[in-house]
Amino acid sequence: MKLLEQAALYIVGTAGIFLRYYIVLESTNNFSTSSMHFSSRDIGCLVSLALLIVFASAIPGTMKRVRNSDRHVPRYAHFLLLLIPQKSREHLIGDLEEEYRAVVLPKYGSSLAALWYWMQTLWVIGPYILVGAKRAIGLEIIWKLIGR
């Protein structure tokens, strides 16, 4: 298991570094908003750092997680779920936790269950981010008008 964890960390670390240099080399343009300026290097670093934190926190021993037992879900993933609209948040998180505790944890153990929870979190917030983005740029109205 330890070897597997080290291999996973090595792959994630390499992917993060590759991503950073890919972004730096591929894009030389500067991104700017009215008050802030970001270079492509800054964005590459942030993305790779975020990737490392997300994946490393799913592996026990690589980051200290605050939990009383294995039955607690990964805390940082739980924070990401706050992006879900309030209307469905409570029920959706409840469903996710129920599946984690009742199905995944007994079947796969704590390490893989934590990884599963992280993957599910990213998959869960994906559709909501897409819907939010569509609304923000007005695509929702256009899609309705053309009958999608």
């Binding site: 029920h91 959706l92 469903d95 869960v124 917030i125 909501y128």
Partner: peptide, 21 residues
Amino acid sequence: YGMTIRQEIKEVAKRNASLGA
């Protein structure tokens, strides 16, 4: 409810859908 609907689709239709979807 959410979890059972997801499980039913996974088991019967063999389609892995996320809870978000």
